[in-house]
């Protein structure tokens, strides 16, 4: 167990290192931030001075080594634009995105899994067909369009919910949270719904498929043949088996919401990481882009580790540390 975690952490470190090279070179290739940062009329001397102050006059490999050296010391560079440490900038925005991602994932689980169960257990009934037809919409409607429709419907026509920003926040341990105030919750509602829609559809389909796979199996028939109550067969025998694929997808989906909440955050003007990264790309704020991507990579490595550990908890056939997986 401990050996497995250490092994995975080392592997993760390798992934992070490899990603850092790719990200660094990739971002370097996008363009020269000096052009964007200074007055186009400035002379060469000013340019050189700016480039030198930002460390951009160094060769790429040296820039990378400097980056690596400071990364080891917890510094991922200083934002060209805001002139504060990039990592600080990102961590400031992280709670807002986490709030969205957690909300969307929770909503998707609490709606998607029960509906998927119903659709899987009562496969031929009309309500199962309605659920499945509904899930096709969730899958195929583009997020930005749904976001706009939500704004139009609930924000503009009905005027029920705010569509801009985080609303009132409360600080807990120095971090601002929206979900602890009523106003903040109202602000959360639409973006969370927007982000959750696709995932609700995904969980419906995933749960249904898993149920349909498990129900005809012999051990479910045996449980019924032994007179175990249907509700118990569901919770103890079916659910426990379908949680194995579902947990994996929850992990991946949570990661992807955090990483790619960009569209929703832009539409609802949500001051999260997604919005920050879009702004930073526009301004070629290299340290922020690099730091953001590194944070995302670390997050995915961490999520994968947690999913693997949960896997081993849920499925006794999985052995931690075996290299065959």
């Amino acid at each position: 167990m401990i050996a497995f975690i250490i092994q995975r952490l080392l592997q993760g470190a390798g992934v992070v290192l490899a990603m850092s090279v790719i990200v660094f070179v990739g971002v370097f290739a996008i363009g020269d931030p000096v052009e964007l940062l200074i007055n186009p009329d400035a002379d060469q001397l000013t340019r050189d001075a700016v480039a030198h102050s930002l460390g951009l006059d160094q060769p790429l490999w040296r820039q990378y080594l400097i980056f690596l050296w400071s990364a080891v010391h917890g510094q991922l560079g200083t934002s060209f634009v805001f002139n504060i440490p990039a990592i600080e900038l990102i961590l400031q925005r992280l709670p807002a995105t986490l709030e969205l991602a957690l909300g969307a994932t929770l909503l998707a689980i609490t709606i998607g899994i029960p509906l998927g169960l119903i659709a899987g257990l009562f496969d031929n009934s009309w309500f199962s067909r309605v659920i499945m037809a509904g899930s096709i919409f969730g899958f195929s409607l583009p997020t930005f369009w749904v976001g706009l429709i939500l704004i139009l419907t609930f924000g503009v026509w009905l005027g029920w919910l705010p569509v801009f920003g985080r609303g009132e926040t409360v600080a807990v341990f120095g971090i601002e949270w929206s979900f602890l105030t009523l106003d903040g919750l109202a602000h959360l509602a639409l973006p969370v719904l927007n982000l959750a829609l696709f995932k609700v559809a995904l969980f419906i389909r995933l749960t249904r498929a898993s149920v349909r796979e498990i129900v005809p199996q012999d051990f479910v028939r045996f449980a019924r043949a032994m007179g175990i109550h249907p509700s118990r067969v569901l919770t103890r025998h079916i659910l426990k088996n379908i949680m194995i694929p579902i947990v994996t997808v929850i992990g991946i989906e949570f990661g992807s919401v955090v990483a790619f909440a960009v569209v929703t955050e832009s539409i609802f003007n949500w001051p999260g990481m997604g919005k920050l990264i879009i702004e930073s790309i526009n301004q070629l704020d290299r340290p922020v882009i690099v730091a953001y991507l590194m944070v995302i990579v670390v997050m995915f490595v961490f999520i994968n580790l947690v999913v693997d550990l949960l896997y081993a908890v849920l499925d006794p056939r999985v052995r931690l540390g075996s290299t065959s997986r």
Partner: peptide, 11 residues
């Protein structure tokens, strides 16, 4: 049942 490999719940 016939097949003991599938009659017991794996988890």
């Amino acid at each position: 049942f016939q097949d003991p490999m599938t009659t017991l719940n794996p988890v």
